[in-house]
Structures are given as structure tokens and as C-alpha cells.
Design a binder for these strands. Structure first.
Lengths: 201, 201
DNA sequence: ACGAGACTAACACAGCTGTGCTAAAAAGGA
DNA sequence: TCCTTTTTAGCACAGCTGTGTTAGTCTCGT
């Protein structure tokens, strides 16, 4: 029959073009035409894959979280519970150019999602990712507790919330002031925080 | 001479209209005309006070930080160093409707400021506020240390960074999931964090 | 009263916006 | 080769965008 292009791959290419536009000029500049130009196609071609703009935005936001999820899923959980925890938590932080780009875009979407009206679908994405990270924090702390690595009498639920907040705060700092908040420093702070939770050897 | 209106007050009214638009429909909807309509004036009137849109955006963002700064400056530092610290840090968190509104707007501006090109002035505002909060954290910890309330051998600089990240993370959580992250819970987590830094009585 | 200065509204313009629609091009199976 | 289906480019439309400009309205000190 006719020419076949990888539909899913094309949609991702377009979404990535949207990311670049958002990162370069902000979400206000993310129009169908600028995105098409960035992707190297005509506006009509883009609209063939995304009939309307809201769908494009929603897909692009979802792609961010899928990318992160894929990377997290690819982690091999080996080593001590502590090393594993550090490894997982680091993956959620924007410590290199690629993840920093994703985080910038994510931040733009998150701000947009806060708008009461309009694309309500974005709000659900935020909640999903947020709950996912909270759950990850809790799981990692539970694993540490099972290993007897944590101090006695620790409220794991509370510590998970605190860790979660710390992670998001560190992510923000790494993103908006990458020079002042180097990757090494962020790793150091994260490790230090975990150490304050651990039992004295 | 002619009719006199309070110039500064009018500019703030317009900026607040911009906030409402951003909060309701996102920063993408923040055009001169929608803002004018929201403020109840004509677009021409708005442009009399803000010749161009970038100026309006920049002013509106600056107003957010000024409002926060004013509230922080109005705090009466009385009570123990711990109470004072809690009082100050709480003020930086979006724990009521007004501050939540400000934070939503701030988040939208922050995301926009991350765009490499375009309104470069926004970037400076972000840095100023960011540094201000970091400095506040450090000052409060130093005051606690001077009172002998902190554990011995604590790296204050490091703890200030950790506290700062925690604050920003808690603020984010309080803003995007206010139902799941109640004001009481945030206060509890903050107090708990400080307690982990304090010397055992 | 009157006129100088501060303020407001309205229009114009070129350009961009999302979306609907249509015609053409491409490419693989028959 | 030709035909069928997918893919692409382009146009059209109404409406919005930022910004210049201009004409008008108001209010106060003289």
C-alpha cells in the first residue's frame, strides 16, 4: 500500500521539537507553526499527527514523564540498599544537560497545569508523576528499613515526605542555578540527608 | 493641573489583574487585552502605564517578590530562636489562598525565565529571590547556632542549602497538591526538620 | 473660565494564532 | 504499470497579537 512512517516515532520527534521551542522561547512561543518549523516540517504535517494543539501539549508532557520512567525502570538495583537508593534518587534529578532540558519543560508544563481552566489533562499528569516520586521515596526508605540501615523509631511515612520535598527542591535548584548548585554538590547533599537517617554504625 | 491618580497603585492593580489571568488560564493567555479586560480598563489605558508587554511581565514578577519581602520584613522577631525561625520560614510557604496564588504566578514566571532567549530580566528576579531565601536560611541557622540550639559540629552552610531545598520542595508540594499536603502537615514537616538539627535537651 | 497637563479610549496595521479544508505527492502491492 | 492509501503542503478564514498613533476627556491650579 502506501508509504509507511513510524507513527509513534514521528510523534515523539514533534514533541521533542516542542521541547526545544519551549526551552528556547518559553511555552508562550509554542505554536503549531513554530513547532513545525523547529521540526523541519510544514504546519499541515504536524497537524496530521496532532489534530489539535492541546493534544500536542498533553502528549509532549506525557513524553517527559515516560522518558524519566523508562530511565528509572532501566536501573539495575544492585549494591547495598543505600547505593540503590542514591542511584534511584539521583535519576530523578536534573544533573546533566538532557535531564535539565526535560526538567525545564516539565516546569513549564507544571506551571501551565496550575491554571484552573484550560487543558485539564495536564493536571492529571502532574499528579501521576508526583505520586510516583513520593511512592519511590517511600519504597526506598522501606528497603533501607528492612536492611536495618535506618535509625530506630523513624516515622517512615513522614521521612518519605521530607525526602520527597528535598528531592524536588534540589531538582529546582539544580535547574535554575546549575552553576551555583553543581551536580556534585547536589549528590553530596542527598547523600548527607540519607546519612542523617541511618543508624550509627 | 490635571487629574491625578496614584500611578504606583494603578500599576499594581494592573499587575494583579495579570496574576488573575495567569492563574486562571496560564501565562499563554496573558495578553495586553485580556489583562485590560480583567482589570476593567481599555487596552490603551493599560499601555499608558506599561508601554510594552515585557515591562508589564517584569513588573508583575517583581511585585510578587516585593509582596513576599514586605511580609517577611513585617515579621516581629520575638520568642525563641526556634520560634522565630519557624515563623520566618513559614512565611515563604504558600499555606493560604493568597500566598498560593502568588506562588502559582511565581512558578509560571520562573518557567518562562528559564527560556534562554527572550525577557532576560526575569532571570535576574529569579536569582535575587533565590539568593534571598538561601541567605534567610543561613541567617536563621546562624541565629540558632548562636543560641547553642544546634547540634555540635554541624556544617551550617550545608544545612542552609538543605533547608533551602526542603523549603522550596515543600512550597511546590503545598502548591500543586494542597489537599494532600495540608498547611498543618507542611508546618509539621518543617518543625520536624529543624528538630533533627537541634541539640538534644 | 480656561487652559495645561495627565489620563483614556479607540482605531490602524502588519503579523501571528488555531483550525478546517483541499489538492497534490509519495510509495508499496497488484 | 497503475491503483490505493498514507502522508505532505498549502490555502483560507476569522480572530487575536503587540505596538503606533491620534483624538478625545478629565481635573486641577491659576
Amino acid at each position: 500500500m502506501p508509504k509507511i512512517v513510524d507513527h509513534a516515532a514521528r510523534r515523539e520527534k514533534i514533541a521533542e521539537a516542542l521541547w526545544r521551542v519551549v526551552r528556547r522561547d518559553g511555552i508562550r512561543a509554542a505554536s503549531v507553526r513554530t513547532i513545525a518549523a523547529e521540526a523541519g516540517w510544514s504546519a499541515g504535517a504536524v497537524r496530521y499527527y496532532f489534530p489539535d494543539q492541546d493534544g500536542l501539549l498533553s502528549f509532549a508532557m506525557d513524553l517527559v514523564s515516560r522518558r524519566v520512567t523508562e530511565r528509572v525502570a532501566a536501573i539495575q538495583p544492585k549494591g547495598s540498599a543505600t547505593t540503590i537508593a542514591l542511584r534511584y534518587l539521583e535519576e530523578a534529578l536534573p544533573l546533566d544537560a538532557e535531564r535539565r532540558a526535560e526538567f525545564d519543560v516539565w516546569m513549564a508544563f507544571m506551571a501551565q497545569a496550575q491554571a484552573e481552566s484550560g487543558a485539564g489533562g495536564l493536571r492529571a499528569h502532574v499528579d501521576t508523576v508526583h505520586d510516583g516520586l513520593r511512592h519511590l521515596c517511600e519504597s526506598l526508605l522501606n528497603a533501607l528499613a528492612a536492611d536495618g540501615a535506618l535509625q530506630d523509631g523513624l516515622d517512615v511515612r513522614r521521612e518519605a515526605e521530607r525526602l520527597h520535598a528535598l528531592i524536588d527542591g534540589l531538582a529546582l535548584h539544580a535547574a535554575i542555578q546549575p552553576d551555583r548548585t553543581s551536580a556534585a554538590r547536589v549528590r553530596q547533599l542527598l547523600r548527607h540527608h540519607l546519612e542523617t537517617l541511618m543508624a550509627r554504625q
